[in-house]
Design a protein around this nucleic acid. Sequence first.
DNA 1: CTTGACGTTGACGTAAACGTAAAGCACTAT
DNA 2: ATAGTGCTTTACGTTTACGTCAACGTCAAG
Lengths: 140, 140
Amino acid sequence: MTSDTSIARPSSRTGETWTIAQVAEEFDVTHRTVRHYEDLGLISPERRGTQRVYHRRDRTRLSLILRGKRLGFPLEEIRTIIDLFDAPRGRRTQLEYVLGQIDERRTDLEQRLRDVQDAIAELGEFERRCRDDLGRLDHV
Amino acid sequence: MTSDTSIARPSSRTGETWTIAQVAEEFDVTHRTVRHYEDLGLISPERRGTQRVYHRRDRTRLSLILRGKRLGFPLEEIRTIIDLFDAPRGRRTQLEYVLGQIDERRTDLEQRLRDVQDAIAELGEFERRCRDDLGRLDHV
DNA sequence: CTTGACGTTGACGTAAACGTAAAGCACTAT
DNA sequence: ATAGTGCTTTACGTTTACGTCAACGTCAAG
């Protein structure tokens, strides 16, 4: 909208970094939301001076956060989950802990899977009844 | 725990009604939660004098509410959804409205279905990598 | 008739997830 | 030099979904 020619925009200079405005728009959230996630430790963008610089890693995390939200997880729990992906995994104890966590999460997700499937099924059944009613209204 | 013999408990006298304590325990929520749902118009138990009397209908609604919550829907939205099931459906306009709503909900739910499936898949992939790491630690 | 056990209505408190100014820096375009 | 655009922090406000007393009603048992 403003001049967009010939100037070195702070944007794709590096080709792989983004400003807060760019990620906010891309993921359809506000700056405030993005910063809030940072406050809670869900993302930690680089700082160039005072400004935040977002990398691919941050965007990956953001999409994980938003999916987690769509699934109804609280942000704190989302943090522990996506932190899992970046966990050390060096020692055996660590790996076994991580595998345990994975199992917990899967159990949870499978419950949600059933919930969604049930809800969709009920909706389908309900739609059928409505269409029946509609059909009866037609050929009176 | 207290005396449980020979007295007409307020419970299954009618065989099909429940007290707030009973439904609360059955669904593993507090009285406060149940009353909160009533305040928001999600359930509307019968009143016998000042006391609330819950019927099968209320329990059905409660389970729908709790599933909706597990799926991350806000209570207000849950209300409009489950109210849909009890909507009049008499006139054609009503039926078409309801069918439209059903479609909106289904779209939403199908998004969530994809989200859950993706999340489970990613978790599986991640577990595989962890097991690989663990295997490498084994036969050193 | 008093004591529980259970139920009721306020009403204030709280945690989560942001919204919404307010006020100030940094750059650069005119 | 100044205005504009974008980013920053600080901080109080708001909504949702209940938690947590407080204070009182009721009914059967001892």
